[in-house]
């Protein structure tokens, strides 16, 4: 079923991944999020927990009067432990869905930079053959300057937490 992480998907798909990414850190790893989907960054606001919310949804925050859900990437990516970051940030992403745009906060440890990633730098994610939860959210792996950036499939993450993408 996983069309994104198929190693044999060919160059065309990896080609389409090239572009500008916002990179950030969660745990010890560096991730990238397509810049066009990022609307803004906000410092950590107080998150109100929503009892009975799906796994991975940290709660809701007040974004200038709008109530938006905040997703904790640690849960999705299988990263253990609480954030040790002194300056956690919420990346506000806006996704286009058939039901109109939806806005969601994504909680990360630290925002790094905006980077241009060329298609030549991108490789398909390897499969570890254990039906891995975490790797299905990775579109590709980009390397440069000896650093590795994991390109996130944010649409899939958000739809897996029952955001209206799947509805």
């Amino acid at each position: 079923m996983d069309t994104h992480a198929n190693p044999g998907a060919g160059a065309a798909q990896l080609e389409s991944l090239a572009g500008k990414y916002m990179t950030f850190r969660v745990g010890g790893e560096e991730y990238g999020l397509e810049i066009l989907k990022v609307r803004e960054l906000i410092g950590l606001l107080e998150i109100t927990r929503v009892p009975h919310a799906p796994q991975g949804v940290k709660g809701v925050v007040n974004l200038r009067g709008k109530v938006i859900p905040v997703v904790d990437l640690r849960e999705h990516l299988g990263i253990d432990g609480a954030s040790a970051s002194a300056r956690p940030v919420i990346i506000v992403v806006q996704l286009q869905t058939p039901n109109g745009p939806i806005t969601t906060g994504v909680l990360v440890d630290q925002v790094l930079e905006v980077r241009n990633i060329a298609s030549a730098q991108i490789e398909p994610p390897p499969s570890f053959g254990r039906g891995d939860e975490a790797t299905r959210f990775i579109l590709g792996i980009a390397k440069n300057d000896k650093r590795v950036v994991l390109l996130l499939d944010i649409d899939l993450i958000l739809s897996s937490t029952n955001l209206s993408l799947a509805a």
Binding site: L45, T48, V50, H52, P54, V60, N62, V67, L163
Partner: peptide, 22 residues
């Protein structure tokens, strides 16, 4: 409360409190 927080059937909505929290 919008989408993204599951069915959330025990809440009829959310409100911004006087300190800006929800």
């Amino acid at each position: 409360l919008g989408q993204g927080v599951g069915r959330a059937e025990f809440y009829s909505g959310a409100a911004i409190l006087s300190d800006g929290c929800i």
